[in-house]
Every structure is written in structure tokens, then in C-alpha cells.
Design a protein around this nucleic acid. Structure first.
Length: 577
DNA sequence: CACGGTGGAA
DNA sequence: TGAGCTCCACCGTG
């Protein structure tokens, strides 16, 4: 055993990383390339090496040897031989199969592999299902190009992801450029943004489809536009909501020579199809009734798109995968801050949009000063004795809510507000009752989905101007792209364990700060309740990105204090000005 | 036809 | 494990 090493590598593909070890940071960085974090109890982070995590590494150019060497250099004991073999096997599978066009038969593709045994297996496994597929030699199989996406999906499921070299249609040409240097709007791509664009383009023949992972505030729209600018073609942009649709349109009009008449909005309100069209996912998947057809999917074929951009690709809904399978000859760029999905469709993103081409760890952007340095604190707030009784008597499904709405959280909120007397603060939560109560108690306005868009905008503006220092916000914070930036966020409750949600919320305070470039993220969790477990699950993604949550445990309650507090509220008095 | 409100879907 | 929010289509108004 070698205690100078931070990891324990197990034969079941799990890797335990000791927190607080002096080589922790470096090991975390290495693991982030080829493993995914699955658990993070206090003393050891648990990573899992999965086929998909290895294939994404392979797509970034990692060899099996490099993965094994990396593990070996961090492992306390010898890396299990079985695991080494697994890694060699899995990594080698990536690219055993390639997809190319048949130079002789139009619309025909050829699946190739030097491994004839593998070819036999593929024929056996997918051959029956696919009409018109035929073997043309020991190492080659031909099929119709319309099945390209379907084939890639099947082969990934089979465990042999194919490298797609069949190329792309360039689509209708569209000439434009960045607004010229010297103009007021001119700007420079940051180095990492240039790298991301280059990584997406790949070497000639490869690239042209895949995912770029960047934190909130990393400039994803800029990367999308930069890819468009390189390709000079008509482009379809899909994104999550109408505000984001307008943002894309505004950004494009502002930074490029494209003019408004060339940029269309395809949403519930407008149905424009122009050389650059921005649409919501929701309109594509909209159906009048449960089993009528998707009437807007035709958008994919309404023009000769040369590029499709999937903004927030982690939200891509299942029916859009199906449509995506049919347009594999079109270049595809996925953009996201968190490639993790809670529904296990990572594999479909991988096979249909493409592998991860670029990933910038959040902490590296922080070091360079592109985003704020954030202190994350988890505060464990005990329940009063009354509440403990209520909690233990409640049925399973009510327990979580009782814990989440623990009124003792209010004292902590007040204390935090006092600690940051000058800062702009967002109080973010899940339950409207709780938020209304908090809003009334601290005398700060509440923004929820009930509030009209106009009223929201008014409050956003006051907040931006500094007239309102504290905003209480519901789940609107998860969606509202126009919510102003703050430097302190207090999460008072959250949903079961959505890693995405936590990332979104942290993203609200990541924009660089003028003075010391620091921000604070507090998450309030009721001690000894189910909420603790969900909090851990939520935090997973950010821990994977290298954030650490300092844990503060509040002393057990003085029962009188919390009763007093409730009385004061009921009498309508504000606890804090 | 521009609205605001309602109900269904995810 | 479920509450909350958004988006879309429809249907009234004036």
C-alpha cells in the first residue's frame, strides 16, 4: 500500500478518491476526463468508470494506455488486472467501426471494420432488423443513408460506437461575418472559446458534430455564432424557451452582419422560417392531443440547414432525438453547462448529437477570472422539538416538505443577510408558501410564476439599479434567463436531487464581480431529515466540477426562540428590516 | 387582429 | 417520492 496516493481503484470500475489528500485536486482533474462522480460522502468521493465516460475520453483523444497510466499513478494499490483489460477493451471499441460513404452508390453508406468477427456479430445483432442491409465483403456492410442515425444508436447500444466519417451536406450557403473590428460592438473570442470551436471542427473528415460543455457565463452563444461564422451556412438553433430565443436573435443581430430580416423566430407566437431560425424545443414537440402527430417537426426540413445548434442539449426531449436521427447528414453542435441528464439519455446525446468535443472545467475559468470565485456553504438547520414530532409522524411523502419548510431557516437567512449588508442577494426556493412567508418576514419582494412578465421585468430592473437589494424567487430562477446577476444566493429548498438545478442556481452568481470577484452560495438543509440526502445528490455535479461545500451545523434549537419567531410573524412584525 | 385568460402537456 | 413553471393552442373580448 502506498499512502502517498489518493485513490483506491476497485475491480467493479469504482474509484474512491480520498478528500483532503494533498494530491486530491490533481486526481479530481484527471478523473473528470474518463469517470463520473456518483457519490460524495464526506471522506471519499466515489467515481465510476463507464463505457460512455471512456468513449467520451476516447473521442477527446485519450488512449487506453493513458487512462491506465493515469489510474496507476494515483492508485494506492495495483490497478486490478481485470479492470485494465476492461478499459483496454472498451476504449478500443471506440472506432473499431467506421462509417463512410459509398463512392459508387448514391445515398449508400458503408460500415467498415478490420475485425471480421465483430462484423459477423453486428450483422447478427442488427442485420435482421434492417431491411436492405447487405454485406459486401468480409469487412464491409452497406445500407441506406437514411438509416445513419438509427445505425449509430444501435451500435452504441451494442457497445461499439462508430466513428462517423460519412461527412455532411453543407446546406444552403449564407455569407456573413462578425461586425468589423473598431465597431462599437466588436469583440474578441477568448482563447478557450477559440479552442472549443477548433475542437468542434476537428480534423478534416472527423468533427462537425458533437457537444461543447461550458459553464454558465462561459459564452455559449458566442461559440454557437463562431461555429456559424466558420461554416457560413443557414442554421437552425433550438433552445429551451422564448426568452432564450430572443437572446440568440439579439446577440446574432448585434455581433454579426446578419440583419433582422435574415433571423427568424419559430415559437408559439411567431412562425418565421428564415436563413437563421431560432425555435423552442417545446414547439417541436407540441401535440394537440396525446396521440396526434408532431406538426412542427417539419421545421427540420423546411430549409437546407447546414448546421443545427442544440442549446442546452441536456434538455433535449425524446421526440427531438428521433428527428435528429433522421438528419445525421447535417452538422450538429450541442451546447450545455451540464452534460448530465437525470433520465439516462446520455447515450442518445452521444450517438445522435455527437461525442463531447470540449469541456472546460469550471474551476479553470475561475482561476482565469472569467467567472467569480464562489464559496459554497451547506448549513444544517435543526428542527424545533415540535417540528421533529410532526416530521416523524408524517407520511413519507410529506416528510420532505416539512423538513424543507423548517421555519428555523429564517433565523439563518437573517444572519446571512447581516453578513452581506451591501450585496445583491437572491433567496431561491421551491415552495410558494414558504417563499411567501420568507418574503413577508424579511420584507423583500417575491417573484414567482404567478407574477406577470411585466411586473417581473420591473423588479429585475430595480434590482439591477440597486433599489431593491434582495429578491425572493421561486423556480422561475431555473428558467428566467433575464434574471439579473447577484453575488449571494441562498437556497432555502430544492427538488429531489436535480444536479442541473443546483448548477443553474450557482450559475446565477458566477458572473465576474468588479471588486474582489467573489460570490457566496448558501444552501439551507434541515438537519437529520431526508433533505440532507437530496442535498448531497444535488451537489454532485458541482462537486465534480471541483466545488467544495463547507458544512456548518447549527446548534440544536432553543425551542422558545422558534416559537417566538413564529408569533412575531403571525402578528405581522418584520423580523429583519 | 391584438390582447388576456384558460386548460392541457411535459 | 411532487410542486411549480413554461409553452402552446384556443377562445373569448373590444
Amino acid at each position: 500500500m502506498d499512502n502517498s496516493k489518493p485513490c483506491i481503484v476497485q475491480h467493479d470500475r469504482m474509484v474512491l478518491l480520498e478528500c483532503g489528500h494533498c494530491a486530491f485536486e490533481e486526481a479530481r482533474e484527471q478523473l473528470s476526463f474518463y469517470a463520473e462522480l456518483v457519490k460524495s460522502p464526506s471522506s471519499f468521493h466515489t467515481y465510476r468508470i463507464t463505457p460512455l465516460s471512456l468513449w467520451n475520453a476516447a473521442a477527446l483523444g485519450w488512449s487506453a494506455t493513458r487512462v491506465v497510466d493515469s489510474l496507476h499513478s494515483m492508485s494506492r494499490w495495483d490497478v486490478p488486472l481485470g479492470l485494465i483489460q476492461d478499459i483496454r477493451d472498451l476504449v478500443s471499441r471506440y472506432g473499431k467501426l467506421t462509417l463512410e460513404v459509398d463512392p459508387n452508390v448514391p445515398y449508400q453508406l458503408i460500415l467498415k471494420s478490420a475485425d471480421t468477427q465483430l462484423m459477423d456479430e453486428v450483422i447478427q445483432r442488427v442485420g435482421m432488423l434492417l431491411l436492405g442491409m447487405r454485406r459486401i465483403s468480409m469487412t464491409e456492410m452497406a445500407f441506406h443513408g437514411a438509416r445513419r442515425g438509427w445505425m449509430k444508436q444501435e451500435l452504441t447500444r451494442l457497445g461499439y460506437p462508430v466513428i462517423d466519417l460519412a461527412g455532411y451536406d453543407d446546406g444552403q450557403r449564407l455569407s456573413f461575418s462578425w461586425k468589423e473590428a473598431g465597431a462599437k460592438e466588436s469583440f474578441q473570442l477568448r482563447d478557450y472559446q477559440k479552442d472549443a470551436v477548433k475542437a468542434f471542427e476537428g480534423l478534416p473528415g472527423s468533427g462537425g458534430s458533437g457537444v461543447v460543455v461550458l459553464p454558465c457565463g462561459g459564452g455559449k452563444t458566442v461559440i454557437g455564432m463562431a461555429v456559424m461564422e466558420r461554416l457560413q451556412c443557414e442554421t437552425l438553433i433550438l433552445t429551451s424557451n422564448t426568452t432564450s430565443v430572443r437572446q440568440w436573435m439579439d446577440e446574432i443581430a448585434l455581433k454579426t452582419t446578419l440583419v433582422a430580416s435574415e433571423i427568424g423566430e419559430y415559437s408559439g407566437q411567431r412562425k418565421e422560417v428564415k436563413p437563421v431560425t431560432v425555435a423552442t424545443y417545446q414547439i417541436l414537440t407540441h401535440r394537440r392531443t396525446k396521440d396526434s402527430e408532431f406538426e412542427h417537426m417539419k421545421l427540420f426540413n423546411e430549409r437546407q440547414w447546414g448546421l443545427i445548434i442544440y442549446d442546452e442539449v441536456h434538455l433535449l426531449p425524446a421526440p427531438v432525438f428521433r428527428a435528429t436521427a433522421e438528419i445525421q447528414a447535417t452538422r450538429r453542435l450541442g451546447l450545455t453547462a451540464t452534460l448530465v441528464r437525470e433520465d439516462g439519455c446520455e447515450q442518445d446525446v452521444f450517438s445522435l448529437v455527437g461525442p463531447k468535443r470540449y469541456d472546460m472545467p469550471w474551476r479553470q475559468l475561475e482561476l482565469k477570472g472569467w467567472i467569480a470565485k464562489v464559496d459554497c456553504v451547506e448549513i444544517r438547520v435543526p428542527m424545533s422539538i415540535d417540528l421533529k414530532d410532526k416530521y416523524h409522524c408524517a407520511e413519507g411523502k410529506h416528510k420532505f416538505r416539512i423538513a424543507a419548510e423548517n421555519p428555523a431557516k429564517l433565523t439563518v437567512i437573517s444572519r446571512i443577510l447581516q453578513q452581506h449588508p451591501q450585496s445583491c442577494v437572491l433567496v431561491i426556493g421551491q415552495y410558494l408558501d414558504q417563499l411567501e412567508w420568507i418574503s413577508a418576514s424579511i420584507g423583500a419582494p417575491l417573484i414567482s410564476g404567478k407574477m406577470s412578465q411585466q411586473e417581473r421585468n420591473g423588479l429585475y430592473d430595480s434590482f439591477r439599479r440597486g433599489e431593491v437589494r434582495i429578491l425572493v424567487v421561486s423556480k422561475v430562477a431555473n428558467f428566467a434567463v433575464d434574471l439579473p446577476d447577484a453575488s449571494v444566493a441562498i437556497e432555502v429548498s430544492g427538488s429531489f436531487g436535480s444536479r442541473q438545478e443546483e448548477a443553474q442556481r450557482l450559475g446565477r452568481i458566477l458572473r465576474p464581480k468588479s471588486a474582489d470577484n467573489r460570490a457566496y452560495f448558501y444552501t439551507l438543509v434541515t438537519k437529520d431529515s431526508k433533505e440532507e440526502d437530496f442535498a448531497i445528490q444535488r451537489q454532485m455535479f458541482l462537486i465534480e466540477q471541483g466545488y467544495e461545500y463547507a458544512i456548518q451545523v447549527q446548534p440544536d434549537p432553543d425551542m422558545l426562540t422558534s416559537i417566538n419567531m413564529k408569533d412575531r410573524y403571525i402578528k405581522g412584525g418584520h423580523i429583519l428590516q
